[in-house]
Computed example of a mutant assay.
Amino acid sequence: MRSAYKFRLYPTRAQIKKLEDTLETCRQLYNDALAAKKEAWEDDRYNLTYYEMARQLSANRKKNQALGAVYAHVLQDVLRRVDKAFQNFFRRVKNGEKPGYPRFKGKGWYKSFTYPDAGIGYKIEGSKLILSGIGAIRIFKHREIEGKIKTCTIKRDSTGAWYAIFSVDTEEEPPRVDPRTAVGVDVGLKNAVTLSTGETFSYPRYLIQMEKKLAAAQRRLSRKIKGSKNWIKQKLKVARIHRKIRNLRDEFLHQISKKI
């Protein structure tokens, strides 16, 4: 089975600068690769492959200081993202679905980069995650990772917090459910969860209180002048409350799933 482990990172100011520079370099590379594929297709109906883009990247890294400062496999993963976006686009066109042409990423819309090879370019040593080109970042590893790590993704959320997400392969087989003991689960508004056995789980009081706090913060945000300093500060407060609610909801749902 494939599972994921998400841990909070606590980088220093210097490391935050390096992380943000890496994100920006990856964003620009994504847009450049997208533009190159778009131009090749519109001019010659030619689908520029990942390997052709990777060869060009190798040449560009020698001339471009920003590209040269980022671990090569991270940049290669960016090109794979672009290639996959086009593959999905052509698949949707072929299947008669809404195509959704790949979009360029504006500032703030590219939020993660990935080390695609397990143990290459990064490693965990105690309470530190060592990233090539960035350094040893303090990581809050609140549980042990079980299984074989496949990739490590570094992500920044809307509040500016940083996380490491490890994709892991476990040797466990997916659990087989006996239909005679299966239980139906319905997610609703009045009750958080209702089981086919008649048992219900209500939303916890602390979650309801946080949602009321979010509503009040959003009302205050709506009264600010968009783009002003006060609006930016209030927007960050709203994002932090969203993060808190998300964490509380995840914890609540994990507790319910354990009981079930």
Rank of each mutant, 00 (worst) to 15 (best):
K98A: 07
I149C: 07
E173P: 12
K18N: 05
E172T: 12
E97Q: 12
S3M: 14
V193E: 00
S132K: 08
P174R: 07
R180Q: 15
A69E: 08
M1L: 03
G188E: 02
K98R: 11
K212F: 01
I137F: 02
L75M: 07
E39Q: 06
Q255W: 11
I260T: 01
I208K: 13
T170R: 08
H142W: 08
L214T: 04
E211M: 07
M53E: 05
L23P: 07
E251W: 09
V74Q: 06
P99I: 03
P116R: 02
P175Y: 04
S132A: 10
L189C: 11
R240N: 11
K229C: 09
S228W: 00
I241A: 04
R143G: 02
P179W: 00
W231R: 00
S222G: 01
G188I: 05
R92T: 00
M53K: 05
E97R: 05
I260V: 14
K235W: 08
F90Q: 04
Y115L: 08
D250C: 15
Y115W: 07
K259H: 11
N230Y: 01
Y122F: 10
I16R: 10
Y71K: 03
N47T: 15
E251Q: 13
Q65R: 13
N88F: 03
G133P: 04
A66C: 10
R249A: 04
P116C: 08
V78Q: 00
P175W: 06
K6L: 11
I149D: 05
Y203N: 09
H73I: 13
V168T: 02
A192E: 05
K229T: 13
R27T: 04
P204G: 02
K226E: 03
D117W: 14
D77A: 15
K235A: 10
A72F: 15
A136S: 11
K155C: 15
E251S: 14
K229R: 09
G68N: 09
G100P: 10
K63G: 07
Q209I: 11
Y10H: 13
V82N: 05
I137H: 00
A54H: 09
G68V: 06
Y50V: 10
T194I: 06
H254Y: 14
E52A: 06
P11Q: 01
A40D: 03
K111D: 08
G96Q: 06
T197Y: 01
A164H: 01
L131H: 03
T181K: 13
L207R: 02
R103V: 09
T181V: 12
Y50K: 15
M53G: 02
V185G: 10
K123G: 06
A85N: 06
G106P: 03
F7W: 04
N47H: 14
T170Q: 10
S257M: 09
I260Y: 02
P179Q: 07
K148Y: 12
L75K: 01
R45H: 14
R92Y: 13
